[in-house]
Amino acid sequence: MNVVVCVKQIPDPAAPQALDPQTHTLVREGKLIMDDSDAYGVEMGLQLAEAAGGGEVTLVSMAPGGETSGLRTALAMGAAKAILVSDDALKGSDALSTAKVLAKAIARAEPDLVIAATESTDGYTGTTPVQVAELLGFPSVSFAKKVSVGDGRVHVERQTEAGYDEVDCPLPAVVTVTAGVVEPRYPSFKGIMAAKSKPVDQLTVADLGLDAAQVGAAGARQEVTAVTAADERKAGEIVVDEGDGYEHIVRFLEQLKLV
């Protein structure tokens, strides 16, 4: 079974994030790391390929500057190879442009199953994977919290407002996984060493046969006109509990007439 896992490489979310003051797009410079949200997809892909008794995991990523450090992390976890699309023309891409690029790259790996996260940490549009599915002509199941594969079908427990749905879907398909579906493994030392020599196929927009006018800022057909700090709430009274903390809460509840 060929499993493709989408791996977004992002600036470390723990570091302060910035916007380009001119274009208002996220600044993605310096070293990028694998989005933590995708670690679950990588683990799920590895487990499903193992369970299927053969097949391998191919990573697909779109990132600036030929960035591979996040991909190396996922290769160290056990993925076999990676496809990286990197091209200056992709600067300013929105979800749809990104999906067009990812779909073309994913198609090259001839996947039975495509796994992505329900949403990325930095962009969190949550639409890219299902856009990829539509572009590939695949069915999709979003918000999977449990996934198994057998008989050419994928079986998913999908989160819903009320609880969850059991969903059955023929392959090839796109599945988006939530954090917590599986416990991502830590790369072993051996894995980290092996990852250094695993193939990363680097492609440009032209290699994928895409028109530069369809992707990047040109394809996004939207602009951010202003960015402001969100309304801040004022911090109120802070009390260190000396055994009487609950009394402050009771008084507060009384003021609100909740007790």
């Binding site: 929105d94 749809l96 639409t127 599915a133 539509e134 996004a220």
Partner: peptide, 20 residues
């Protein structure tokens, strides 16, 4: 859940971007 799926599918069918 379903809203995001509809928006994503529709966006590709119409080749229209989405703001989320």
């Amino acid at each position: 859940y379903d809203g995001r799926d509809v928006a994503a599918r529709l966006s590709v069918r119409l080749d229209a971007p989405v703001i989320t």
